[in-house]
């Protein structure tokens, strides 16, 4: 992530984390958009499949027994 005081306004997407990713995707805007959707879906999949199942037992909803076995 190359940060720096840029003269380019933020809204043309030339900076920031998401701007950085956008700039590094290949192809034209349409193709970039498609890849972005795939990336988002992949992230959601990894979260639902691996990250959340790990995090969920840390919450109190699992304590339903009287001896905490």
């Amino acid at each position: 992530m190359t940060y720096g005081v840029s003269l380019v306004p933020w809204c043309d997407g030339r900076d920031g984390m998401y701007g950085w990713i956008w700039r590094h995707l290949p192809g034209n805007a349409l193709f970039k958009g498609l890849i972005s959707i795939v990336l988002v879906l992949a992230t959601v999949y990894v979260l639902f499949q691996y990250v959340f199942p790990w995090a969920e037992p840390l919450l109190p909803f699992n304590d339903v027994t009287v001896d905490n076995q």
Binding site: Y3, G4, V5, W10, D15, M17, V44, L47, E56, F61
Partner: peptide, 27 residues
């Protein structure tokens, strides 16, 4: 200054999205 604001706002958006997704997962 702008860098800080931008970074912080992007972080907040990311964390907010994560929380919404997690709630959807749990519920």
């Amino acid at each position: 200054m702008r860098v800080i604001v931008r970074t912080v706002s992007e972080l907040f958006i990311t964390v907010g999205t994560l929380i919404v997704l997690f709630v959807a997962y749990v519920l």
